[in-house]
Structures are given as C-alpha cells and as structure tokens.
C-alpha cells in the first residue's frame, strides 16, 4: 500500500498526485514514468513523473482526467492509499550539454517537462520553456518553470494569458528570430507533438517527444502503445517513452488510437451505468479564482 500524500485538482481536469514511494523516489530520473493502480480491480495506469523528492521519498505526477481510468484516479483522496505503484520505468532523458534547449509542454506535459527542464539547467544548458494551455484558467506551474528556466513563454489559444496561439507558433517565431536550439522537447497531447514534429522536419530540429499518452498498460504486453519510429516497430512503454519526434509514424499512431476508441467508450458506458461516476464531484476552481 502506498500513501497518497496529495491528490488535488490543479486546474479543471488536471490533477496533481503525490505518492509516498521511496523505492521509486530513490532511483527515478527525469523523463521516466511510473505505473499505478487506483484499486485492486483497477487497470494499470502509466503516469509520467513531474517531480520527486528523494529525501521525503515522494514522487509527483500531473495527469489529465480524460478516460475511464483517469476518472477513477481523480476520485482518490489525499491521505488514502493505492495498492500498486511501480517504477521507475522507461528510459531516462539523455541530458548533455547542447547549448539551448527549448521545452514545449501542454496539459499534463507542463508537469512532465519540469524535471527535464531542471536537469538541463543543471547541466549548464540555456533553457527556454514554452507553456501552452487553451485558456488562462488551464495554466499551472508557471512560477515553478520561471524559477528554473532562462526564459518562459506562455501561450493560450484564446489569448487570455501570454500570447494567442499554441506552443509551436511561438517556436516558429523564435526560430524566425534567429534562435538555433541544440535540442527541442515536446510533451503533451499528440496534436502538440505531431505539429512540433512537422516543424522539426521543416526546420531540421533535433526533437524529442514523450509518448506516454498512448500507453494502455505500460508492460510491453498489451501492444496498446505500439508505434513505429524510424520504420522500426517500438513499444512506447519499454523502448521509450522518449523518441525522436521526426521518426515517429504519427498517422499510424493515431490510427491505432482510433481503433481503441470503441472499447474505451464501452468502458465508459459500463462505468456510467454502474453508477460509479454518477456522483457529482466538485470540479474545483481554477487557480486564478481565489
């Protein structure tokens, strides 16, 4: 049993989950992920690590409440316990001196990027973070990123905070202004990452993406995360989560994901009719709401 040190809604539908798990906290490196189950019958859920504290023995993740599994996760209470917490899993980010690193993150990726940005800063690289959210009240951890990055840009699709547009619009502008990054990171939804990949192709950028979003059980068994990178079949959970963004077959990945949708919808229907999700859970206020 692992103690839930904190489960809190950061902004609508984005939650932070901190677990007391010294065996993971001791070894985890930026870029890795964990697998947990919210209850004995629950499915295995891969989450990227957004922070860790080796002394306190805690590991933190940020997740988006979207499917059946994460909906249950969002109902965990601080102070409670979960039965399974495995990790660290996947390959750690390679952090080497490379001049300027641009990190683009959206939704749970704003959290997942944080330890990677911190490591690059510690390695002496110049860190530029571009945080993307669709609206002002979906932004979180801006101050945290400001504390470790050389420059932080905020992008919202409606222009209600920072500039109007998405992260790759900002990167395009920076490149047009003469920026030549040694490495670019994109972590977030597949739209963000595939758009970044397109840009990387055009401008010949060294792009890394993290494919945590496509995993199902994270063991290399289910094949849910099968993708193809550089023409080779890969499993995001064991060969990744980080891949060369330009080498990923995005079309194929989205097709696989679409193939899983009827199953996901059926699961949601079952959960809905079981009444498990029927309770009206307070959505919680955004951070700018006092």
């Amino acid at each position: 049993m692992y103690e839930i040190v904190e489960r809190r809604q950061l902004v609508p539908d984005h939650h932070v989950l901190t677990i007391h798990a010294p065996h993971v906290a001791n070894k985890v490196q930026p870029g890795q992920f964990v697998i947990l189950r919210s209850d004995e019958e629950g499915e295995r859920i891969p989450l990227s690590v957004a922070d860790f504290d080796r002394e306190a023995g805690t590991v933190t993740s940020v997740f988006l409440e979207a499917g059946a599994a994460t909906m249950k996760l969002a109902r965990l209470e601080t102070g409670g316990t979960i039965p399974t917490y495995m990790g660290p899993l996947g390959k750690a980010s390679e952090v080497e001196p490379c001049g300027t690193v641009v990190l683009m993150g959206g939704c749970y990726g704003i959290g997942a990027l944080y330890p990677i940005a911190r490591a690059h800063r510690a390695a002496g690289n110049r860190v530029i973070s571009i945080l993307e959210a669709h609206t002002q009240w979906l932004l979180y951890w801006t101050e945290r990123h400001q504390a470790i990055a050389d420059e932080v840009y905020v992008m919202t699709s409606d222009g209600t905070a920072g500039e109007r547009g998405l992260s790759f619009d900002k990167l395009t502008a920076l490149l047009d202004g003469g920026l030549a990054p040694g490495l670019v990171y994109a972590i977030g939804c597949t739209f963000l990452m595939s758009s970044a990949a397109k840009l990387a192709e055009e401008r010949d950028l060294n792009l890394k993406v993290a494919l945590n979003t496509v995993m199902v059980d994270g063991t290399g068994m289910c094949g849910g995360c099968r993708c193809s990178a550089g023409g080779e079949p890969k499993f995001a959970c064991v060969d990744g989560p980080e891949f060369d963004g330009r080498a990923v077959d995005w079309e194929g990945l989205m097709a696989r994901r679409r193939a899983y949708r009827p199953q996901e919808l059926a699961t949601m229907r079952r959960l809905d009719s079981s009444g498990k999700l029927a309770s009206s859970k307070p959505a919680g206020k955004g951070p700018h709401h006092g």
Binding site: D13, H14, L64, E65, A66, G67, G106, C107, A133, H134, T135, L138, T156, S157, D158, G159, R164, G165, L166, D169, C189, T190, F191, S194, S195, T213, M254, R258, R261, E264, M268
Partner: peptide, 24 residues
Amino acid sequence: GCLLCLHNTDCLEHHGCAARRSGT
C-alpha cells in the same frame, strides 16, 4: 479555448471528437 483557437480545425481533425481533447 476552443472557440477562439487559431488551430481549431486542425486540432479537431487530428483528435477527432474525444474526451481527451475536451478536457484540455
């Protein structure tokens, strides 16, 4: 977020209509 987004059409085309997109 969705209503005023410059990339609305591309985004919808990419994700299709999905819970994940809704949430963000």
